[in-house]
């Protein structure tokens, strides 16, 4: 069975993929549907959904189009999720690989360093980092990356520890390949599947983290994100439910989709495991 067929066997994963594709399409087509800035005040405030043509989700406290905010917000959420996960991988992968491959004192030192980060509640640390660096897309991406790399390092280390004594690694060593080559060319490709699964879940966590930060008012004040929309709607939740409902639904669906896709990837990349499970 090929990769996609295995992935598609998991119905949930397929649904997740469809939702995720829709959201990505939303993000890409936002400027086509709503060429104007989502901050633009266009209509009376507090229009209910479908009350006026062109405002299927109504308007917010300032008369801004909620639908436009939602679509432009998709872009921000996905961007922050992907970039911060990439940055977290860039920190976690090398640390975990080095620790797992070399072992010994170096391993000890790197793992104590990792534990240092793990002992601090990640959300609290993210708040502090963003507050210190001043809220902006860059500082939020960095903060999320800095609090989410330790699990990556842990996972990669474990993979490397179990793979480094395999026969093909020994063979490579006998042929005279250097450590760097072995790490990059021999072990890493074989350790990729759990990392990919973890990364897909990390994107979901990152989106949630960004939303929570924006909800608390620590988002980038210059970009419209879902978390910001909910945070701003909080004070008027009794007058205008739709202001928090739609972005809330968007976050829920995105995170759910990413989790489903992650599970599907797990099945597709570890066919033996998933067959044993079922």
């Amino acid at each position: 069975m090929n990769f996609f067929a295995r992935f598609a066997q998991n119905r949930g994963a397929l649904v997740g993929l469809i939702i995720l594709t829709t959201i990505i399409l939303m993000a890409i087509t936002a400027p086509l549907f709503f060429p104007e800035s989502p901050w633009r005040m266009l209509q009376r405030p507090f229009l209910t959904p479908f009350e006026v043509d062109g405002f299927p989700m109504g308007t917010d406290t300032m008369g801004r189009n909620v639908a436009a905010g939602l679509m432009h917000g998709a872009w921000v959420s996905l961007l922050i999720g992907l970039v911060s996960t990439t940055v977290a991988l860039l920190i976690g992968l090398p640390l975990g690989a080095i620790a797992g491959y070399y072992g010994g004192l170096l391993d000890d030192a790197l793992m104590r360093f990792t534990e240092f980060f793990q002992t601090i509640p990640s959300f609290a640390l993210a708040i502090v980092l963003v507050a210190i660096m001043q809220p902006s897309v860059t500082s939020i991406v960095l903060a999320i990356a800095l609090v989410s790399w330790p699990p990556v390092a842990r996972l990669v280390r474990a993979e490397f520890m179990s793979l480094r004594n395999r026969e093909y690694v020994e063979a490579a060593r006998l042929v005279g390949q250097g450590n760097t080559t072995i790490i990059l060319r021999q072990i890493l490709p074989n350790a990729m599947s759990p990392i990919i699964v973890l990364a897909s879940l990390m994107v979901a966590t990152a989106i949630l983290l960004e939303s929570s930060l924006s909800f608390l008012g620590l988002g980038d004040p210059n970009v419209m994100s879902w978390g910001y929309m909910i945070g701003a709607a909080r004070t008027v939740i009794r007058q205008a439910w739709w202001l928090s409902f739609f972005p809330g639904l968007a976050i829920l669906l995105t995170v759910l989709a990413l989790n489903l896709v992650g599970e599907g990837l797990d099945d597709a990349l570890n066919p033996k495991l998933s067959r044993e499970r079922s």
Binding site: S37, W39, R40, M41, M62, Q134, P135, G217, L218, P221, N222
Partner: peptide, 19 residues
């Protein structure tokens, strides 16, 4: 602040809000 930023951007002023 969001309204002011929007007003200013509409006349071409490049405003960035710093919270």
């Amino acid at each position: 602040a969001e309204a002011v930023q929007q007003n200013l951007q509409e006349v071409g002023i490049n405003v960035s809000t710093q919270s």
